[in-house]
Write a protein that binds this DNA or RNA. Sequence first.
DNA 1: TCTGGGGTCCTAGGACCC
DNA 2: TCTGGGGTCCTAGGACCC
Length: 432
Amino acid sequence: MYALVDCDNCYVSCERVFNPALEGKAVVVLSNNDGCVVARSPEAKALGVPEGLPFYQLAERFPGKEIHALSSNYTLYGDMSARVMSLLRASAPDIFIYSIDEAFLTLPSSQYSDTDVKAWGEALAAKVRRWTGMPVSIGIAPTKTLAKVASKFAKRYAGYRKCCVIDTEERRQKALAMFPVADVWGIGRRTAMRLEAAGIRSALDFTQMDAESVRRAMTVTGLRTWQELHGRDCIALEHLPRKQTICTSRSFPKMLTTRDELAVAISSFAARCAFKLRQQRSMAQYVTTFISTNPFRDDLAQSSLSHTIALPAPALSDPEITAAALRALDTCLRKGYQWKRAGVVVSGTVPADEMQTSFLDTPIELKQKFTKLSLVADKVNHSLGDESLQLASAMRAPDPTTGKATTFRNSILHTLRSPFYTTDIRDIIEVM
DNA sequence: TCTGGGGTCCTAGGACCC
DNA sequence: TCTGGGGTCCTAGGACCC
């Protein structure tokens, strides 16, 4: 059996743990630059606030409603997630962390009989709530896709006391009959529209299609989902310790036009990618830089450009990745556009211990220096704060009046952000 | 005025090899 | 006039996830 543990309205719940005044209120959490709504409390959902709504439309669309909006505080959410996951790991050692707010636990059948698995789930949800403050819902079933279905029931109906189990054929049929096909894990908007046009509305309707037509219409991934809904376990979540592609991208609060402004942003994205590479102990063979204009501005010239550079040998240091990203920027940059978004992608990752050199590469001594320098910078930044030590190319020229050099991250808007309650001693909560 | 970010998997088709 | 068979690798694009 699999247990899917899912945090309820994750970002909003993290905020409520430290600001209980938000309980029972309509709350939304915003994306970077306070752009649009990425998380909603049940009260906000009940008002009809859609996911992805641009923040500036919130007041227009919901006049007179009291809706609390917060900037996203990923430092807080990441830390709260780690607390929840460590509790789950202690309860069931075979855990696959699927996202910041979800994990699959594998329950050995020898250990849990049918009768007490429900009690086990209820107790786990209660423990997570009590120890971390986070509300979670748990779905238990023989396949991951059915566990997902079960968790939605656990979330929706209080009667389940945070844990729903789909273990018998009768329960499976009943649950799937009530479950919209569009909500099935693995069936997205496109496919759902096609299925509904063909009269297939519930997950049960979908399971009654014949396997061959499912495969034809939705390829083998769709067939896997179909099998899983029938109770046959066939989606393997592989523990991929090494990501094959790592991307860092942002929209800008204002559109950029000069090479210098873009270079500061690209340097910062490149360094972030290099850091992520070092964290997973890999090196990248390719570096891509992309830039694009604002697609919502019909009145402006549109362009979306990218360039990929094959490194002479795999790299993981800030200087090497940044130099390649800036070279790629200079290759693709065109005049006459206003750039709204940019990013750096590193790909073709290989394990860092399989380092090879080539005659064309940076001289080996220099490469080793760059690597050591980046590792030292990681340590300094870990103890003194994220941007304590970085390449000068990631900083703007100092302001002539204050003499202070600012970074790209300084320019991201998050005017409604909550304090770093759990990770910064200056923000520690005070009890009066 | 203001519209997010970061991934994975699958398939088709072209290039290329013998 | 008639023009094979089998395979790999790479890439772009679509679909999906949170």
